[in-house]
Each structure stands twice: as structure tokens, then as C-alpha cells.
Amino acid sequence: MPVIALTRATALSLLRNGFSRFLFILACFFMAGALLMLSFDIGVRYRLLENTLLASQCFLLHLFAWSFGFDVLKKNTAEKLYVLPFSTSLSARSWLLGRFSGAAILVVGMGLLFLLVDTVLFAALKIDIFSVLMLQVLLYVASACLSLAVIFFLSCFLDVLSALIYGVVLWIIGHGLDELLLLTDQQFEPAVQILVQCFYYLLPNFSFFDISSQALNRLPIETEKLVFILTYPLIYIVVLLDIGAAIFSRKPIGQ
């Protein structure tokens, strides 16, 4: 019950924030901008439109996650919003989970809205609604939620701005881990390969979520891979929040 109450309050507070409204307008602007690609033809009809939509939705979902995360965490510290909740029997885990879920639920909501826009648009243009294309949008949602969890985790031992910056840096690094592993496997010594493999499995690996080439080329995706990339963010988020809560609970409250 405390987690649900916190989730609801966090989501409501974020929705009323002026910056959230700005982001929503920005999203509409991007969607409208993507429609400009309608008239361009690069061999396959509407390919550029699909590509632009996916890229802009990926960018927007992550932008939402980062700004929501920053807003929630900044409020926690600047307005000491944790002081009153912790006067109840609330645990650090419930606090972190409730605040995270409030922000994540809005990211998921935006993802579903994008899916709806895509479906309507594709139906109007008579593009076959290919499931992998839709799956890619859902994976961007998962990626944005994982990035949000990374920022929440980092904020348990860093200040909010540093947590955001390192969170974004980890997202960039995590995006290139597939290529890095491929490169080191081919060109570097075993010691470097082991080090990169450690990074590959320990750091949040955002390269798992990119199936845009399969989506755009209408290639199917194997079931095992699908199961893996859907469970990976869930497990990683739970582990991050759990370790974060353990760190957070060691801090004195209200200073």
C-alpha cells in the first residue's frame, strides 16, 4: 500500500510539472516532424518515416525518463520530501520503489501513446503493422526505464546532477557494448577481452534493446532472444533498486 500511494503521488506531481508539459509538446512536435518524411522515398516506401519515428521515439522516451528521474530526485533532496514519509514505518526499499514506479509509469504511458500514434498512422498509410516494429518501441520503453533505474541507483550515493550525468554516460556506453565486444573479440588480447566481457555483463547493456534493423527490414526475432531482452531489464532494475535501497537505508534522514 505505501508503494502504491507513493507511485500515485509521484506520477501526479510529475504530470503537473511545467517541464513535463513542455516535453509533451516537444513529443508532438517530433511526431509532426517525422510526418515530413512521408514524401521521401529511399527505395522502400515509408522506410524513412519508420526510421525517423523509431529514432525520435527512442530519444523522447529516454529524455522523459531522464527528466522525470532528475525532477523526482531533485525534489527529494531540495524539498526534503523523504522526511515526512520516513516518520511512518516506510522502508527504504518501498520508498525507492514507489518513487521509481511513479516516474516509470509515466514513461510506460508515453510509450503506449507512441504505439497508439504509430498504429493509427500506419493504418492510415496502409503500412502493414509489423509486430517487431511495435516490439522495438516497447523495448525503448524498457531501455528508458532501465536508464531511469540506473539514475535512481546512482543517486543513492551521488548528488542528483552527478547521478543524471553518469546515468546518461552509462546509457551511451551501454549502447555501444555489443560493438565493443565484437571489436575486442577480433582484435585484442585475451586480457582485454575478459575485461570487456566483464563490462558487457556487469554494466547495464542497452545494446540488447536495439532491434531496429530487424524491425525495419521486417525480420523475425527468435523467441529465446525475445524472452531474454524482456526479462533482462526487469531483473536488472530489481537488483539496482535493491542495492540502492540498502545504500539509502544506511544514510541518516532529515539532515
Partner: peptide, 18 residues
Amino acid sequence: WLDAQLTGREQFQLMAGL
């Protein structure tokens, strides 16, 4: 130390939930 964006009623609901 309250979330200024929430109404009084929502503060009650939050605190009751907590």
C-alpha cells in the same frame, strides 16, 4: 516538507497510504 504540486486531499491520500 510537502510536495507543493499535490493538493491537500492528495497529501492525505499519500500519508494514509504510507
